[in-house]
Design a protein around this nucleic acid. Structure first.
Lengths: 190, 190
DNA sequence: ACAGTTTCTGACCGATCGGTCAGGTTACCC
DNA sequence: GGGTAACCTGACCGATCGGTCAGAAACTGT
């Protein structure tokens, strides 16, 4: 609600994504926000709560996209629309996605990360279903992990690429990567 | 030299790659090796030394591949041979590569990681040169980050895919992803 | 001006971190 | 068997971690 709480959320998200959850101390977050550590713990009762607040919107958004996707047949038109939505999602929530991809496995005991891992699993399930070959699984993994890596390393290297050009390139590359999977999911051809 | 030192190196590498360098304590490594924390510090004088021992072979190998690549013109035959070598490298050193990709930016103060980041930069330079478009940069990033993600999440999910099939799929996908860049690097066509 | 609520802070706590050190244990060599 | 070097350990250190708590400071409505 207050600006301090929102500031803390944004700062924590950026630090968690770039430096890592374990490597980011509450003192560091407080320092960046111009507050004391106690104030951080006033707005968020624990470090874990802060992580949850930081990543929950991204999980909710991705869940909504998946629900919408599961509500009807996977026609080519829907496939294309989904890819656009997915790219927008990755662009808007690149820090959160990077956090899930890079630190998800090492934060399994945190409930909100489990929710995120479930969403990733649902997404993988939709693309590769149960009959996915090894190459299909790898195409999906490379697309997801690769997109997350490239987008967040932009932050880390300090410069920001023009967003519309980035989006167009991402749609091109992901469409190319996932095309065989999407076709197989639609007509299940060998 | 001794088996303890090698065991520690292997255990530390696996833990650093999956749980993260900051999140892995010397006590944890010692526990997995069946030793005391003091014994770990007997074989490696610090946690940073242990990290260096764990990742140095991968950096040396990648440096050698890049030196060889820079020693002559980038003919199609060399391009194909390089891709094979590169895929073998990623497969053999998947834990190290995953560590560089995921934690490189957050470990900039560690000298050996700086060496790794330099190697990644040399690699990127070779592919995208100075004229690389945004899409070319992203193709390279997705290939590298995506391959590292898919290979290491295999470890994390507990099962290992057949290696020859994995290698074949990886060559196919990376060739497809990097083809436009390699061609541009050779003849610099628009 | 007053009371009440929100926001913020420093002092403090137990736990764990990486690292040091003195000394015990094992293995090898003559 | 004695010496010696390699290996291993528990006790300990200062620093930092996440988190608690009592209370100061600032803002609110009346």
């Amino acid at each position: 609600m207050s600006t301090s709480a929102d500031d803390l959320r944004a700062i924590a998200l950026a630090e968690f994504a770039t430096a890592g959850y374990a490597a980011t101390s509450l003192h560091r977050i407080a320092e960046l926000a111009g507050l004391s550590k106690s104030s951080v713990l006033y707005h968020y009762s624990s470090k874990e709560t802060l992580l949850e607040a930081a990543v929950a919107p991204a999980i909710d958004r991705m869940t909504a996209i998946l629900d919408e996707l599961a509500s009807g047949p996977f026609t080519p038109a829907r496939r294309s629309a989904f890819l656009d939505e997915f790219v927008d999602f990755i662009l808007q929530y690149r820090r959160e996605v990077n956090l899930f991809i890079n630190q998800g496995p090492s934060l399994v005991d945190v409930p909100v990360i489990d929710r995120a891992n479930e969403v990733v699993y649902r997404l993988a399930e939709h693309f590769a279903a149960t009959t996915g070959s090894i190459e299909e699984k790898m195409r999906f993994g490379i697309a997801l992990g690769g997109a997350a890596y490239t987008l967040c390393s932009q932050d880390e290297f300090g410069f920001a690429l023009p967003i519309d050009e980035t989006r167009a390139a991402l749609v091109t590359i992901l469409t190319e990567l996932l095309a065989p999977i999407a076709v197989a999911g639609l007509v299940n051809q060998e």
